[in-house]
Nucleic acid binder design. Structure first.
Length: 692
DNA sequence: CTAGGGTTAG
């Protein structure tokens, strides 16, 4: 059995580079579930495989497992105690190969020191912010540092160092602290500084600091090493990462599982699959119970090479070691299943994940949609999409793009358009993403329809991005979008939102192309000289040519535009005309006990106008001393309906402005109430103030 | 809040 595995590895090593899809495990995965056997075979491959990999043995860097062999028999202590200093046990120990292999990692994670609460935390944080805000130059830093509010004691310095955002600042501060000579620089100062440097990918500086630690005899611990290693990894300096890992053993420090999985990832990312497996197996043989992070590293590695047997191995290992996969592990394995070309297994894995109680995130869904798209599994893709909506699973832009690509792949043009529409409705804040999606759709050749265009324009209008709006409108028209009344209503509502006259003109230019008659009417109502009869006639003309569903929005927007320009009288005329032509059914409701005004389908401006109108009418009735009900009600709704957002607030402030006696109903949200007595005395007070 | 490891498009 060992021989067959060895052969498998040989075959793997000698296969040409182009054949990357070929599985590493030519044997059955069940044979992989015995770590020791693999271990043996991996170690026994040495000389032949080195030759196969590199014709010149002198230039070949030994693999870690090969290097660990002499290390474990020379430098590593023979006792179970990891902490035994290296130098106290010189080379003399010879390990009997029949004895169990020595541990390669410490089973205990390095403990962190605990902090005590720093009472000056506020001041120090504030100061750190000042440092963050100054220029990234040493001069600026040295000027700012003079304002340090407290003595830079060890604790104060640590707190500041931890709060600095830019690696330059951390580095300046670290050097400054060092120059003050107030206390010895401990490992933690180096570790925190290195973490910040890693953020800036400053491997050279990190290495410099590490060497400084060595020469100053400051202990490098697991946190130091893992930071160095992951920084090298992020800079794609895999050899350097491995070098530091080996230096760690040489100094007698045993990696804990964090450092160990960091180095596993280094080997995985540099494509050294055998080394990863060897290290993994030796870790397990040392009694390590790998955690989900380690399995995610393995899963990613097998995914990269599309190695289905490897993926199965990971799943099986987790099962036999009793490790429950977390979301990241599932995401990684799903992705890997896709690369291995196993859509069906990806689907079952996803089901298993959901059944285990985990909620998929954007990455999960992206992986799966991509898989279904590539496999042209339209039914599964659409079903998943439906589930995403039903369960309100999270969406992000990458997922949207993947959905779009999937639609384009499978040829689901209508669905792509629906998606486009959805996105605008669901997220008014993501304007950039909407624009980007628009460009993306254009590139993909997915036709933009009038609904998608309307949604995008609505989105841009709300964000006051008028130039983008004009551009999108132009592009859409060029692509053959035929503007309909909804699109015109949308443009009209943007006109009502515009603050500057330049913006108004830009939108009007669009509207002119879409509906010149509407623009003509707009000019007419803006003109103070236009008489009511003329308005009435032209209003009728515009409305009769407008789709029924778009009529009320038109009227609402026109009223809003009038109110924004202090054309209040015109606004009242339009509300009257709207009511006359049946655009506001159910606005007024009367029973014996209560009269109500239902403004829920009105825009803010229209609702204000309706309230004023109502108040005038009521005042007339009071003056005529006609019969009034006991209760008056104004309904604005709670703003959950998409047309009535902010209506209650706007209404409340308008009620205040009029000093009308309406109060928010305590029992019914989105409802304002007034009693007959209150209303009557309010009307009388107003009358006396007018006559006075 | 305060030092270290893993996952999404083209």
């Amino acid at each position: 059995m060992a021989a067959s595995l060895s052969t498998a590895l040989d075959v793997h090593l000698s296969i040409p580079k182009s054949d990357t899809k070929r599985p590493i495990f030519l044997t059955k995965p069940t044979q992989r579930s015995h770590p020791i056997k693999i271990n043996i075979s991996c170690n026994s491959k040495s000389s032949e495989n080195v030759a196969a990999e590199s014709p010149n043995p002198e230039t070949k860097t030994l693999s870690l497992s090969e290097q660990l062999k002499p290390l474990s028999s020379t430098t590593l202590s023979p006792t179970k105690n990891d902490r035994t200093p290296l130098l106290s046990k010189p080379k003399s120990t010879w390990v009997n190969p029949t004895k169990p292999r020595r541990s390669v990692l410490s089973l205990q994670r390095q403990k962190r020191s605990t902090y005590s609460y720093n009472p000056r935390v506020r001041d120090l944080k504030l100061f750190a912010r000042k440092l963050n805000d100054c220029d990234n130059t040493e001069e600026a830093f040295l000027r700012a540092i003079t304002e340090i509010p407290h003595q830079p004691t060890r604790e104060n310095a640590l707190l500041i160092l931890n709060s600095l955002k830019f690696w330059q600042k951390s580095y300046f501060f670290f050097n400054w602290i060092k120059s003050q000579n107030l206390f010895p620089m401990e490992t933690i100062f180096y570790n925190v500084t290195m973490k910040s440097l890693r953020f800036g990918r400053q491997f050279q500086l990190i290495e410099q600091l590490a060497n400084e630690m060595v020469s100053n005899e400051i202990e490098l611990d697991n946190i130091t090493y893992s930071t160095i290693i992951t920084c090298a990894k992020r800079c794609n300096l895999f050899d350097e990462a491995i070098e530091w890992f080996e230096r760690m053993y040489k100094t007698g420090l045993m990696p804990d599982e964090v450092t160990y999985s960091a180095i596993l990832d280094v080997y995985a990312k540099s494509g050294k699959v055998e080394e990863v497996l060897s290290l993994y197996e030796r870790g397990v043989a040392s009694g390590w119970k790998p955690d989900p992070i380690a399995f995610s590293v393995l899963g990613k590695m097998f995914g990269e090479s599309g190695d289905y047997d490897g993926i199965r191995y990971v799943l099986q290992e987790m099962k036999s070691l009793g490790v429950q996969p977390n979301l990241v592990v599932y995401n990684t394995l799903l992705e890997a299943m896709g690369k291995a070309g196993k859509p069906g297994l990806a689907r079952s894995l996803f089901d298993e994940m959901v059944e285990s109680g985990l909620t998929p995130d954007e990455k999960t869904l992206t992986a799966l949609i991509k898989i279904y798209g590539k496999a042209r599994w339209a039914k599964d893709a659409l079903e998943l999409w439906e589930r995403m909506r039903e369960n309100k699973w999270p969406m992000d832009f990458i997922l949207y793009n993947t959905l779009l690509n999937m639609c384009a792949d499978i040829g689901l043009v209508e669905e792509a358009e629906r998606l486009f529409e959805d996105m605008k409705l669901s997220d008014g804040g993501n304007v950039d993403k909407a624009i980007e999606l628009f460009e993306e759709m254009s590139k993909l050749g997915v036709a933009v329809n009038v609904m998608g265009c309307t949604c995008l324009i609505q989105c841009l209008g709300k964000a006051r991005r008028i130039d983008d709006l004009v551009r999108v409108f132009g592009v859409s028209i060029d692509r053959g979008v035929k503007p309909d009344d909804r699109l015109c209503g949308c443009l009209l509502s943007v006109v009502s939102l515009c603050v500057t006259s330049e913006d108004v003109d830009k939108v009007i230019t669009c509207l002119q192309q879409a509906n010149p008659k509407l623009v003509a009417f707009l000019k007419l109502i803006e003109d103070n000289c236009t008489g009511f009869e003329n308005i009435k006639e032209e209003f009728r003309n515009v409305i009769k040519d407008t789709e029924v569903d778009a009529r009320r929005p038109f009227c609402n927007c026109l009223i809003d535009i009038c109110r924004n320009r202090n054309l209040n009288e015109r606004a009242h005329e339009l509300l009257y005309l709207g009511t006359l032509y049946g655009l506001y059914p159910g606005l007024h409701n009367k029973t014996l006990d209560e009269w109500s005004l239902d403004v829920r389908s009105l825009s803010v401006g229209a609702a204000q106008t309706a309230l004023e109108e109502w108040m005038w009418t009521l005042a007339k009735i009071v003056r005529r001393e006609e019969v009034l009900p006991q209760l008056f009600l104004a309904e604005t709704g709670t703003g959950t309906h998409k047309f009535s957002q902010g209506l209650a607030t706007a209404f409340a402030s308008h009620v205040n402005k009029l000093a009308a006696p309406f109060r928010q109903s305590e029992g019914k949200a989105g409802c304002f109430v007034a009693t007959r007595e209150d209303l009557v005395s309010w009307v009388q007070a107003r009358r006396s103030s007018i006559t006075a």
